[in-house]
């Protein structure tokens, strides 16, 4: 579907969520079995895929096996922060921190 690729986060919020095969991208800061869920952030020009979200607390990229949509709850194991995906002012999906 066109438009799908345009916004970062690319979520259409309707229908089946796309699924993603995750590979280990060398992020070694969490125990081995969780490494494929994270990657390093490459700086301001780094384009995020629809299954990826930036952790605003520790500045790494969290990767989900499926497309991320607003309302999803996400855990950043690198900084132990609970996040919730929301639609940002520019239409991109961003993570908001949830405090207890």
């Amino acid at each position: 579907m066109k438009g799908d690729e345009e916004a970062t986060g690319g979520s259409t919020e309707v229908g089946e969520r796309r699924r993603y095969e995750l590979d280990d991208q060398g992020f070694d800061e969490v125990p081995k079995k969780y490494r494929k869920f994270y990657r390093r952030w490459k700086g301001p020009g780094d384009e995020l895929a629809p299954n990826e979200i930036f952790c605003p607390v520790c500045r790494i990229v969290i990767r989900s096996p499926r497309e991320i949509r607003p309302g999803d709850r996400i855990y950043c194991m690198a900084c132990m922060t609970r996040l919730r995906a929301v639609r940002g002012p520019d239409g991109r999906i961003v993570a908001e921190v949830e405090y207890t």
Binding site: E29, V57, C58, R59, C76, C79, V97, Y99
Partner: peptide
């Protein structure tokens, strides 16, 4: 990363 995470998470509440 863990240290800044603790700061925000614990102090937020």
């Amino acid at each position: 990363r863990r240290h800044v995470g603790f700061g925000e998470n614990r102090i937020g509440s």
